[in-house]
Nucleic acid binder design. Structure first.
Lengths: 136, 136
DNA sequence: GTAGGGCTTCCCACCATGGGAAGGTCAAGG
DNA sequence: CCTTGACCTTCCCATGGTGGGAAGCCCTAC
């Protein structure tokens, strides 16, 4: 299987497969005589694992940890769960941060007449005008 | 006022002030004889505006738009609100995406015994094992 | 033989920010 | 007068992931 087929089969772009190899996330692929990378089912399985981990928001570093745990048959599931719960905490922190932004923005947008006149509480807030409507 | 004081007064690092100047987000600061940048209250006000916009999650590009609208006395508040509501939509999309991740992860983490044994539904899910507990 | 598609490596871009080196400038204090 | 330290300047590099594209090799089909 060439890199194109592996990409197709895993959903990871060829570009990214090479990159993952370069940074050591996956082992260097075997090469044919013409220097093409070759992949088998096992490699594609790894790529799909990575793809899925990325789609759950894990960083490449976390993904590497998870990959190693996956391949370590004597792992403790507690270690896996620690990675996952840390990531959950991370996501929740970022979600909360963004929700705070949304809350403020919705309030400001609500207070903004949104017509042809120039006065705008959104800009007032950004400008630090403390008399702006509910600048949280 | 030197760049250090402007940084102090605005909460924007000196590094970023220079960067904002370089990309044209703010006008090039005046210079003293010794080539130091000089700032006044007006410039600090702009920097604080940028700082606040960034803290609400606006990109530098959106911030530039808002900055121009702020400085355009004949703006229509509708234009400002369009930028804000687009950004709200963006944030909400990202929040929803992350919440989906959290939901899946929490379920998997809940199903994981988290002890010293190796079997782990989190890894099963990542590995694409469709018999994994509730792999959404 | 040529055309096309795939593969290779290499460099560049994004977005925003920080780190740090090498060198100029200024004020205070010995 | 000289040193020290705290500023400032420009310049390059790194991050995290991903994509774009060029230049060149390889293979197959026509």
């Amino acid at each position: 299987m060439n890199i194109g087929q592996a990409s197709e089969a895993s959903g990871v772009s060829a570009k990214m497969i090479r990159y993952y190899e370069e940074i050591g996330l996956i082992r260097p692929a075997a090469r044919t005589g013409n220097n093409y990378r070759v992949y088998g089912e096992a490699e594609v399985h790894v790529l799909r694992f990575i793809k899925r981990a990325r789609s759950l928001g894990f960083s490449l570093e976390e993904t590497e940890t998870l990959l190693k745990l996956w391949q370590d048959k004597s792992r403790e599931s507690a270690a896996v769960r620690r990675v996952a719960t840390a990531h959950i905490g991370d996501l929740e922190r970022r979600i909360a941060e963004m929700q705070g932004m949304v809350k403020t923005l919705k309030h400001l947008a609500h207070c903004c007449s949104g017509n042809e006149r120039p006065d705008c509480p959104i800009l007032d807030d950004l400008a630090g005008d403390s008399s702006a409507a509910g600048a949280s």
